[in-house]
Write a protein that binds this DNA or RNA. Structure first.
Lengths: 245, 245
DNA sequence: CCTTCAATAATGTATAGACAAAATGAGCGC
DNA sequence: GCGCTCATTTTGTCTATACATTATTGAAGG
């Protein structure tokens, strides 16, 4: 379900690559950290530097690390998600349009994920943080967000102040993710959404649902509703899966 | 606008890679064609096989070619776009749900793209094919599509029979693309869309707009409307920009 | 203290060779 | 004709080495 590659026998350079990736994804090596120099890794694995180089080259192409001559190789800063998916961080989107961002936290409570259903995939303890909030642009409602965060996976979320930093932004900055699934659709606004977004009941809304994993652990689930005239997703792609703009 | 890499001095392996890529993108080497074996390319460029290998490896990772031991390397079949973007080919989507696909061509005419506006980016001659069609699942309207195709870039489109093959499917199979831009939003159905999709006027619809380029040439522009309950886009991503499922 | 410049440490790229692995196809026995 | 074996071709990976490139460091000189 989560990782694509099975347990096929990896070549040495692939294993080196996977090891480094694991260190980064697990958080052991953090953005900006310098990773061991290539000859050192070569010695460690008992192989030629070229073999290490192939791993680091691939990681650099994938954007996980940055290599700099003479300086060394460093764990890359996490990219803003929008650069990858065209699905932007909301405060960044609003700022881009030259508007003032505001956040209104509607509710945040800790509870146990319901067993048996969708929610029991939230980590071991089953404790989740459930958050409702409203994103505003120049004081006008922009998006309504409903979110669950796994406290088993992200215990620090219990202490975060989501009345000032929106949960999505906080998570992006604090938790590396390995996989995400999006569902995008159109929905008619129900009574509550209509009231919060200040639109007519039944008016069209863009719905964005996202699940995010780190390894096998389900990190967060979120549903965002945008009034139809407030927002369009835009994404630019090449066949390779690159994203730009 | 189109290609990322500027005219920096490329390394030899990068140049080899670019040369092969050009051959594929231009259509000189078509899907399924075998490309020269590595030692042959090495001789041609006067370099070691390893240097060629690095180019072919990168192309394989990018999905442009497929390498098979003993058999050789082949230009990859164009991937179904859904594998990359989560934005599926409509007949494939419908078939996946076990429903019968039907196409109704509403109109197709050749005209000159309007100058000055958006449309003048359609190739040199400015001739475009303008197509309206309706996609049906089990006889029920699924999506309404409005499309422009550049006849300067894709002259063969003039002869294609779009009453049997939907234009998107035909293009995917015939024209390699280098870049695409998507716009996704929610819209209220206008009178015509409502009638065609058999929904109420003002009902929420998912709107999907896509522009596709080959190199600098604008290949096609399309807008598709889906009734809100008929369709959700689903996409699965890793931070690297991979797509799966 | 600041500037200049050279030594140096790291990546960036290429080489020639080696052996492994896999798929193909040819030859052979039945 | 059918199935088995085996040599051959081509990719898959690694090695050890070489030299280029570049940013940093630190020392020399003003």
């Amino acid at each position: 379900m989560t990782r694509g590659k099975g347990a096929e026998t990896l070549s040495l350079s692939q294993r080196i690559r996977a090891d480094i990736e694991e260190k980064i994804m697990s958080g052991a090596w953090r953005p900006g950290d310098r990773i061991p120099v290539e000859h050192e890794l070569a010695a460690q694995y008992g192989c030629a530097r070229m073999t290490v180089t192939r791993a680091t080259e691939a990681l650099a192409e994938a954007g996980l690390i940055v290599r700099r001559k003479r300086a060394g190789s460093f764990v890359a800063q996490p990219r803003i998600e929008s650069a990858v998916l065209g699905i932007p961080d909301i405060p960044a989107t609003i700022a881009e349009r030259g508007k003032a961002y505001d956040l209104r936290l509607l509710s945040a409570r800790r509870r146990v994920a319901a067993a048996g259903g969708e929610e029991d995939r939230f980590g071991g303890s089953g404790d989740v943080l459930e958050i409702d909030c409203l994103h505003l642009a120049d004081g006008i409602p922009f998006a309504f967000e409903h979110r669950l965060i796994s406290l088993a996976v992200v215990p620090a979320a219990a202490e975060a102040d989501f009345s000032r930093t929106p949960p999505g932004t906080w998570l992006l900055a604090h938790v590396p993710w390995t996989e995400a699934e999006h569902r995008i659709g159109a929905r008619a606004a129900d009574a509550r959404a209509a009231e919060l977004l200040n639109i007519a009941k039944g008016a069209p809304c863009l719905m964005l649902e996202r699940r995010t994993w780190r390894g096998d652990a389900h990190v967060t689930w979120v549903r965002q509703l945008f009034a139809a005239d407030a927002f369009d997703l835009v994404a630019r792609f090449t066949p390779k899966g690159d994203a730009a703009g």
